[in-house]
């Protein structure tokens, strides 16, 4: 839960954008789309556990 999460997401963002540019220019449109999809899923995999844990603590804290 440190700052590394944000750096990882930024790194994935930059990597995916570079990869998709390269793939687009070399004519492979589908691979470009697939790489951006993979980046999206990876980021979601990282963020969703934290969001779930956060809402659990809020629910338990305020006895919602």
């Amino acid at each position: 839960m440190s700052i590394s999460l944000i750096f990882k997401i930024a790194a994935v963002g930059i990597l995916v954008s570079v990869l998709s540019q390269v793939l687009k220019h070399s004519g492979r449109e589908e691979q470009a789309f697939l790489t951006s999809l993979a980046g999206l899923i990876l980021v979601l995999l990282w963020i969703i556990p934290y969001i779930a844990e956060l809402f659990e603590t809020i629910q338990e804290l305020f006895s919602l």
């Binding site: 839960m1 700052i3 999460l5 944000i6 750096f7 997401i9 930024a10 994935v12 963002g13 930059i14 995916v16 954008s17 998709s20 951006s36 980046g39 999206l40 980021v43 990282w46 963020i47 934290y50 969001i51 956060l54």
Partner: peptide, 27 residues
């Protein structure tokens, strides 16, 4: 800073970074 930079590369990672930052600050 990172969100603005990622948004500059014209993809949706600026929003993901903003959400991740919000979740961490919420923590």
């Amino acid at each position: 800073i990172l969100a603005v930079f990622c948004k500059g590369i014209k993809n949706e990672y600026g929003i993901y970074l903003a959400i991740a930052g919000c979740v961490m600050l919420l923590y």
